[in-house]
Amino acid sequence: MSRIMLIIFLVLCSLSSLITSSNGSGTKQLRFNPENGKFRILQVTDMNFADGWMTPCEDVLPNQFAHCSDHMTSEFIYRLIEAEKPDLIVFTGYNIYGPDATDAVKSLNAAFSPAINSKIPWAAVLGNHDQESTLSRKNVMKHIVGMENTLSQLNPSGFDDIDGYGNYNLEVYGAEGSSYVNDSILNLYFLDSGDYSTLPSAIPGYGWIKPSQQRISSAYVNSGFFTRLVEQFDVKAVFTGHDHLNDFCGELAGINLCYGGGSGYHGYGKAGWSRRARMVEVSLRKLLNGEWGSVKSIKTWKRLDDENLTPIDGKLLWTYQPDKDCIRKGFGYYSLVSQFF
């Protein structure tokens, strides 16, 4: 069996019934689409949502400013969902801008409303401003976990000593009708990279991934997290938020590292530089018997919030190489990792 791992810091429509099912515990089970052998993830990052219509936009053109508010962000997400019809929506942090959100619960409900109304499964991790309103970081995540259609989790059960809130993984199973139907062939890891340093006098700036989270804009501390990813051999891509004007992908030691850009209008940006979101498409191999097999490739592109939702920067991140992958990982286990830096 071949499996892929993506880390997402952190990542719908009538099709959702084809790609999700119950696993017996009432939780939706993510699954590759049996019609086309694909699993599609919409990454939305840095929404910076605050108080809706009352919240002005930042760094937009003069002719946009007068009627621009948080609802421009919501409209963008609705359009993305309609255009891309993702199987999973992933919010990679900075979901609300706490200092300007007078009621964290109302802001969170409004920020995630496009995903909730779409009936598509969604998941989220936190950024460095989500807890700066009326809820603590833990309670922000607890509220998200209790929202409709979300697959978000507070932390893994049985790991009470793990740092942060929102460390969990989601497994994606093979297509219905295939021999992989009961196999998890894609693993999505979500990690809380923290907000700010817990040792500001010695180490200023942002927080970092802690050793307790390594059981499988960066900080000054090198905690060895990336080394651990490389050592697993099965991590193929990491998707992150936080830097609104960074939206590039680069490869290091065989792992693709991708920024999502900025999706929200209340956070900093650049006038004339369209807000954007990232798509990730994972495709299965077609076997000789006509069944869908294990993961064949991972592609990504971005959509701009312009008149045509222009797709840009399409890129093949990884493709299955039988000899190489079998040598490195036996029958393979591949993953995607997602966090918020």
Rank of each mutant, 00 (worst) to 15 (best):
residue 5 M to A: 15
residue 6 L to V: 13
residue 23 N to E: 10
residue 34 P to M: 03
residue 51 D to S: 09
residue 52 G to R: 10
residue 53 W to M: 04
residue 55 T to Q: 12
residue 60 V to H: 13
residue 77 I to P: 02
residue 78 Y to C: 11
residue 78 Y to R: 14
residue 80 L to F: 06
residue 86 P to G: 07
residue 88 L to N: 06
residue 90 V to M: 03
residue 92 T to S: 15
residue 106 K to R: 15
residue 107 S to R: 09
residue 108 L to W: 11
residue 110 A to Q: 10
residue 114 P to T: 12
residue 122 W to S: 02
residue 128 N to F: 04
residue 130 D to A: 07
residue 131 Q to D: 15
residue 133 S to N: 07
residue 136 S to W: 07
residue 138 K to D: 13
residue 139 N to A: 03
residue 140 V to G: 07
residue 142 K to S: 14
residue 142 K to M: 14
residue 151 L to F: 06
residue 152 S to R: 02
residue 163 D to A: 15
residue 167 N to T: 07
residue 168 Y to D: 01
residue 174 G to C: 06
residue 176 E to P: 01
residue 176 E to D: 00
residue 178 S to L: 05
residue 181 V to S: 10
residue 186 L to S: 06
residue 187 N to Y: 09
residue 188 L to G: 03
residue 190 F to L: 12
residue 194 G to A: 11
residue 200 P to S: 09
residue 210 K to G: 04
residue 220 Y to T: 00
residue 222 N to F: 08
residue 227 T to H: 13
residue 235 V to Y: 08
residue 236 K to L: 10
residue 237 A to C: 13
residue 250 G to P: 00
residue 250 G to D: 09
residue 251 E to L: 02
residue 251 E to Y: 05
residue 253 A to Y: 13
residue 257 L to A: 08
residue 258 C to T: 07
residue 262 G to Y: 08
residue 282 V to F: 14
residue 285 R to S: 09
residue 297 S to G: 03
residue 303 R to D: 07
residue 312 I to F: 04
residue 314 G to T: 08
residue 318 W to Q: 09
residue 331 F to V: 01
residue 334 Y to M: 11
